[in-house]
Computed example of a mutant assay.
Amino acid sequence: MEDIRIIDDPLYETLRNENVEAFNAAKALMEQYPSFSHGDFRGLDLRSMNADGLDLSHAYLRGADIRGVDFGNTNLEGASIAGAKISGCLFPRELHADEIVMSLNHGTRMRYNMMK
């Protein structure tokens, strides 16, 4: 995927180190969150991550373990979850199941189907 990057941010680094507990604790003290857009999360164990309000647009989650994560209020536009473990995930209402399956099985970027 193009433009995937390592983000220079301490909160992002806690996730890259798979320290989800420290990430959740630090995030709870923040009013605004940094953008993780285009972030590289390949193969990381992110179970129990508090993803509420995060911008993970165009993020690369290939092979990540995101089981049980609530993405209901997370921006996943353009993200890819190829080969990720997604059991128990809650995805945004606007994200159609076909988009999730295509991304999971083929690595396509997820597109939102905006309700009118």
Rank of each mutant, 00 (worst) to 15 (best):
G39N: 06
S57K: 02
L76K: 06
N24A: 07
N73V: 11
R16E: 10
G107E: 05
E13Q: 15
A84I: 01
F23M: 08
D65W: 04
Q32F: 01
Y112F: 09
T14P: 02
E99T: 12
R16S: 13
E18P: 06
Y33A: 06
D98L: 13
S103F: 12
G39Q: 02
G72I: 04
T14V: 11
Y60H: 15
T74Q: 10
A97S: 15
G68S: 08
G83E: 11
S35T: 08
S37V: 00
Y112E: 07
L90N: 14
M30H: 02
E13T: 14
A82G: 02
A97L: 15
C89M: 10
I4K: 11
L46Y: 05
F91M: 10
M49R: 04
R5S: 14
H58R: 10
H38S: 10
D3E: 09
G107W: 03
T108F: 11
A59T: 06
I4Q: 09
H38P: 03
Q32G: 00
G53N: 12
F23L: 09
D65L: 00
F41V: 07
R47P: 00
R42N: 07
L29H: 03
G72H: 04
T74L: 12
I100N: 12
Y12T: 03
A22W: 03
A22G: 08
N24P: 04
S35A: 10
N113S: 14
L90A: 13
E21A: 13
I86P: 11
F91T: 13
V69H: 00
S48R: 04
R47F: 09
L29Q: 12
A82C: 05
I7W: 06
E13H: 14
